[in-house]
């Protein structure tokens, strides 16, 4: 139940999936909101502070998740899934990981570009590992913005596909991510 089986996702994988989904969508909303704030807005400093801490949290969760994926069996796709569905699902899942990684790293690079670390919930500073020029910092900003859009759009499509499997095909695709498949 905690670990994956060859047919279903376990508790850890499911918890990682939903916590990352929740945080990523929240980060996206807060990110759009906070970059539009005026200097005199009371959230001007605190919104980016939470954004950066949760961004670093998602990056750490991603590392844990990829590690967990490596040391666990991968549940088989449902027999009812067509080959093209499996192919697209597999590519999308990898792309979601890659986009999360790039969006997270580009955000980190903006804040650490001059050698300062980033605060992690006020507990400690994550140090800078790479000083970059203003030009590359601005590039990191563009990458962060556009790939964040790509990430939420792809995650949205991924969610719609799951709902389609659940309500139209009436198969166990979504149940697998909500632990209900273990009961069937």
């Amino acid at each position: 139940m905690i670990r994956n089986t060859s047919t279903a996702y376990g508790l850890v994988a499911v918890a990682l999936h939903w916590s990352m989904a929740l945080i990523l969508f929240a980060l996206f909303g807060v990110g759009l909101y906070m970059t539009d704030l005026g200097y005199y807005d009371s959230l001007y400093h605190i919104a980016p502070w939470w954004h950066k801490s949760f961004g670093l949290l998602v990056l750490s969760l991603l590392i844990v998740r990829l590690f967990w994926k490596m040391v666990n069996p991968k549940p088989r796709p449902l027999a009812a899934h067509k080959p093209w569905e499996k192919k697209i699902a597999s590519i999308s899942h990898r792309l979601l990981y890659v986009l999360t990684l790039i969006v997270g790293c580009s955000g980190y690079l903006i804040s650490t570009s001059k050698g300062d670390g980033v605060e992690f919930f006020g507990w400690f500073d994550v140090p800078s590992v790479l000083k970059i020029t203003p030009e590359y910092t601005d590039l990191a900003g563009d990458v962060h913005f556009y790939l964040a859009w790509a990430l939420v759009l792809l995650a949205g499509a991924h969610g719609l596909a799951a709902l389609k499997h659940h309500y139209i095909d009436r198969d166990d695709t979504l149940n697998n991510m909500t632990l209900r498949k273990h009961k069937t």
């Binding site: 903006i110 650490t112 570009s113 001059k114 300062d116 203003p134 910092t137 601005d138 900003g141």
Partner: peptide, 16 residues
């Protein structure tokens, strides 16, 4: 102008 430096990475990005 891209070399504006106020000793603060995020502010410098905003200034650019």
């Amino acid at each position: 102008t891209t070399t504006v430096d106020s000793n603060h990475a995020e502010r410098d990005k905003h200034l650019r």
